[in-house]
Computed example of a mutant assay.
Amino acid sequence: MKRNSKTGSALKEVIETPREADAEASGGVTAVTRALQLLDTFGMQDEHLSLAELTRRSQMHKTTALRLLRTLALAGYVVQREDGGWRLGPAAGWLGARYQASFDANGVVEPMLLALSQATGESAAFYVREGNSRTCLARVEGPQPIRHHARMGAMLPLDLGSPGRVILAFSGEPGKLYEDIRKKGYHYSIGEREKNVATVSAPVFGLRWALLGSVCISGPADRLPKAKLIGHAKTIMKAANELSYALAGRPTAQTPAVVSTWHP
C-alpha cells in the first residue's frame, strides 16, 4: 500500500516536533537528543533490534532513525548485523565501563542516607543482594539516643525484614506479598528479623534501571508503630527514587512504573 506523503509528514510533525522543542528550549542539540533516544531503546535483554522496532520504540521517523544509526555506527556506538538488525557497539560498552569505574556510589548514597535520617529522625541504611543474602553497604546512625544498630557487612536473610523483602520483590519473586510490594513500591516490617525492631524500605535502581538494592530506615518498634512506618513510606520512596535517578539517569523504557509514579 502506497504511503500518503502528507499523512507521513503530519505524523512526523506530531511525533518529533515536541522532542525538538524540548531540546531547543533546554539549549540542547536536537540531533544529539535523538541519537541518545535511539541508544536508550535498547533494553537489558535486547541483543539486537530491527530498524522497525527501533523506530517503534523511539517513535522516530524511519529515515531519521536510519541516518542517526549510520552516524552512531561510524563512532562504534552501534553495529549493523548482516540481517539488517542493529546492536550496541564496543564504544557503548567502553563508555559504560568508564562510567562505572569513575563513579563513587558512596559519594551519592551516604549524603542521601544522611538527609533521610535527618528527615525521619531514624537510622538509615542501604542494602544490596549477595547471593541469597543481603548486606548493609552504607549506614547513617539516627539522632535518637535509643536506636537500632546494624553491623556493616553482616550477611542477613533476604526473607526476613523489609530491606530483603523489597529486594526479593523487585527481583521478581512470585507470591501475593511480593506482588503487593511491587504495587506499593515499599514494604514495612515489625519484629520480623529482630524483636522490637521496625523498618520500612524502598527499592533503588542502578545503571539501565537494574535493581541495585534497597534503602530503609529502622528503629525501635515502640517508636515506629505501623501508622508511623506508613507515614514515613513516601519519604523513603522519595529518597530511593532520587537515588535511583542519580545512579541510573533519566527515565527510559526500563524505568519501573513505581519510580515514575512517586518521583516528584
Rank of each mutant, 00 (worst) to 15 (best):
R151K: 04
Y99M: 14
P111D: 09
G161C: 09
R182A: 07
P90L: 05
P251L: 01
K226V: 13
K183M: 02
V128R: 09
V32R: 12
W94E: 15
H148W: 15
L54P: 06
D83Y: 09
E141W: 00
V166Q: 05
Y178W: 12
V109H: 00
G191C: 13
A240W: 00
L36E: 10
T261A: 04
E13R: 05
L88W: 01
E192L: 06
T33W: 11
L88A: 15
Q118T: 06
A240N: 07
E20S: 14
Y245K: 04
A248T: 00
T41R: 15
G84L: 12
S50K: 15
W86S: 01
S26H: 08
R193Q: 15
D40E: 10
W94H: 08
T252E: 01
T7F: 04
A115I: 05
R3D: 11
A150E: 04
D104K: 08
L168H: 02
P220A: 01
T255I: 09
E13T: 09
G164L: 05
E24H: 10
K62M: 15
K234R: 03
S171P: 02
L243Q: 01
R81M: 11
S117V: 06
S58M: 12
E242P: 07
G175M: 00
I230Q: 15
G27V: 14
I181H: 11
L212Y: 00
L224R: 07
I181V: 13
K226R: 14
